[in-house]
Nucleic acid binder design. Structure first.
Lengths: 222, 222
DNA sequence: CCAAAAGTGTTGGCGTTACACCCATGC
DNA sequence: GCATGGGTGTAACGCCAACACTTTTGG
């Protein structure tokens, strides 16, 4: 077994950490950005990321990079998006970026130098990070309808109204309450949980996702 | 701008080149495989691939790797699949594989040491190439229904029966002729072309895809 | 004339949409 | 008792699946 010729090339991972926060009547998508402290693009916003280490797997590198910008324990879903490999995407040299999508129920606890920004009016981002962000949103929108990815944007238990608000926030349009409930129940996306959520109104039944891991649906929602 | 620390790590590209060939009544999916001449996995079948060069973009590397196993000019569609990065996926050292999917209208002209193999009963493959092949098939099946990817598996012009055979071959089930025609016409997937295809039967109207580049459909086919 | 594939409509059932009011609680 | 969200049914419509025969050519 001959050793491989190693080229002068680096692999980075970058993460689009997405969540939702109240805005107006509903929820708006936000992503985690970090202000760059060094050149190139010093002072610009960028996605959390870092260079892959020699014996580290991709997901490990993503978690390491994310942990510099927020606490990891809130991450409920992590998947690979795509690899961006244009030779001059990084002015310092050849760096491929294996981009990832992370989902969290709530945007909280951004570290110093990091912040949650609205996707809708994101500032210019360093490198090709705008393209990566766009890919993340597109992926999430697509998967929402035919999978249970939404579980990454909610806690263990939630009311159907909360679930609907997540769908509306990501899809950017309103859905009919009765039809939405019929659909998510009929496709078996969620099951009733035990408790109720209380507030200044009638208590709301809690639900949980039927499957813990990502599952594709036969039928579409929304 | 400080130079990056370059780690001892290589990036490969691997390609699943897919096509269809007659089998029984219909068409069966086949992929291009190459017999390995060196260790590791000497003598096993593997996917065409190669190490990314320093100033080469990913698609360029894919084309270079493919051109060793077949003529490039038949490739009608090329897209990135996913990046496989387990630290020990290659026994020689750390090599990430950015895998790709290529589509061709017909499986022809495999170079020496390469061959078109049926996906359905593929032999054991080197490295994690079986997983890459599975990802390619899954991607193609999914996209067939809600996009015009099928154009990668057909020539410029084709009859509706040929188009239907492509769908049936990839999906692995038969479709109703009348419903299929209604659907592909109503969603505007194809337009009538000028000629007809002749044979020992009534001449068949030729069609072409409406869009040259990959387009997502509002509605599903099949 | 025969073989082969092209081409063409209708119907029944099901799923999707559109739509408005009563209910249970907290304060 | 009032405000707030929770929770529920039905009717019209459109889409999809199932189904068989006639047409046109080559040989």
């Amino acid at each position: 077994m001959s050793p491989l010729p190693h080229s002068g090339l680096a692999v980075a991972v970058d993460v689009v950490a997405l969540s939702l926060r109240p805005a107006g009547e509903g929820l708006e998508p936000v992503f985690l950005a970090r202000r760059r402290e060094r050149e190139p693009f010093r002072g610009d916003w960028s996605l959390p990321g870092g260079i892959l280490r020699e014996r580290e797997d991709l997901e490990g590198a993503v978690r390491r990079a994310l942990s510099n910008a927020m606490p990891l324990e809130h991450v409920r879903h992590l998947e690979q998006l795509a690899t961006f490999g244009e030779p001059d995407r990084d002015p310092r040299g050849r760096v491929l970026s294996v981009s990832h999508l992370a989902l969290l129920p709530e945007p909280r606890a951004a570290a110093d130098g990091a912040a949650w920004l609205a996707v809708a009016d994101a500032p210019a981002l360093a490198f090709d990070h705008a393209a990566i962000l766009a890919a993340a949103i597109e992926r999430l929108r697509g998967k929402l309808s035919y999978s249970n990815v939404a579980h990454g944007l909610l806690g263990e238990q939630f009311t159907l109204s909360e679930l609907q608000a997540v769908y509306e926030g990501v899809l950017g349009r309103e859905l009919d309450k009765r039809n939405f409930r019929k659909k998510v129940l009929s496709v078996g996306l969620v099951d009733e949980a035990d408790g109720v959520r209380r507030g200044p109104h009638r208590p709301a039944q809690l639900y949980r996702f039927r499957h813990d891991r990502l599952v594709l649906l036969d039928d579409a929602i929304g």
